[in-house]
Amino acid sequence: GLEHMADEEKLPPGWEKRMERSSGRVYYFNHITNASQWERPSG
């Protein structure tokens, strides 16, 4: 619901949600550090 939507907005600075086109899996990418990970970043 709306709570989940708001929660997605609160990623740490630099992080954004991305989708891997080949598999459709969602991952997280940090455009500041060029880091990427499957787990939702905390902090």
Rank of each mutant, 00 (worst) to 15 (best):
E16S: 07
K10N: 12
A35F: 09
N34C: 15
R18W: 04
R40P: 08
I32T: 08
V26L: 07
G1K: 11
P12D: 02
M5L: 12
R40L: 07
A35K: 14
G14F: 08
N34P: 02
R21Y: 15
S36P: 02
S23H: 04
A6L: 13
W38M: 06
V26D: 03
E20H: 15
E8M: 07
E8L: 07
K10G: 13
G1Y: 11
N34K: 14
A6T: 12
A6H: 13
S36Q: 10
P41R: 00
E8R: 08
E8W: 03
G43W: 14
R25E: 04
G14Y: 07
E20F: 08
D7S: 10
F29I: 04
N30A: 01
E16Y: 04
A6M: 10
G24Q: 07
E16W: 03
G24V: 02
E8P: 09
H4F: 12
P41T: 01
I32H: 09
P13V: 08
N34H: 12
E39K: 06
R18Y: 06
H4T: 13
Q37Y: 03
N34A: 07
H31S: 12
G24C: 14
S23N: 06
Y27S: 01
H31R: 14
Y27I: 03
A35W: 10
A35P: 01
A35H: 13
K17S: 06
W38F: 09
E3M: 07
G14L: 02
E16K: 04
S23L: 04
L11Y: 03
I32W: 08
M5A: 14
K17L: 09
T33H: 04
M19S: 07
S42T: 14
G14E: 05
F29P: 00
N30E: 01
R18G: 02
L11G: 00
P12Y: 02
P12T: 02
N30K: 00
R40D: 03
L2S: 12
W38D: 06
K17F: 05
T33W: 05
E16N: 03
E3R: 08
A35I: 14
Q37R: 05
R40V: 07
L11I: 05
V26W: 14
G43N: 11
N34E: 06
E39S: 06
Y28L: 00
H4L: 13
G1V: 12
G1R: 12
E39H: 10
P13G: 06
P41D: 01
V26Q: 05
S42Y: 10
M5I: 13
V26N: 04
P12F: 02
I32K: 08
E8T: 10
D7Y: 07
R18Q: 05
Q37K: 03
S23I: 03
K17N: 01
Y28P: 00
Y27A: 01
K10T: 13
V26S: 06
G24R: 06
N34D: 05
E20C: 15
H4K: 10
L11P: 15
E9A: 09
G24D: 04
H31E: 06
S22D: 14
R40W: 07
M5S: 12
P41Y: 03
G24H: 06
E16M: 06
Y28S: 00
L11M: 05
A6D: 14
P13D: 09
G14C: 09
I32G: 05
P13Q: 09
D7Q: 10
L11Q: 03
E16D: 03
P41M: 01
G43R: 10
S42I: 13
E39Y: 07
P13I: 08
V26I: 13
I32M: 09
R18I: 06
H31M: 10
R18M: 08
M19W: 15
E39D: 09
W15S: 00
V26K: 03
E20L: 11
A6W: 11
M5K: 10
T33G: 02
Q37W: 02
E16R: 04
K10R: 12
S23Y: 04
S36R: 15
D7F: 08
S42F: 09
M5Q: 12
T33I: 05
N34G: 15
E20R: 05
I32R: 07
P12V: 01
D7N: 10
R18E: 01
S36K: 14
P12L: 04
K17P: 05
G1T: 11
D7E: 11
D7A: 09
M5E: 13
M19Y: 15
G43I: 13
F29V: 05
E16V: 10
G24E: 04
E20G: 05
R18A: 04
Q37P: 00
R40E: 04
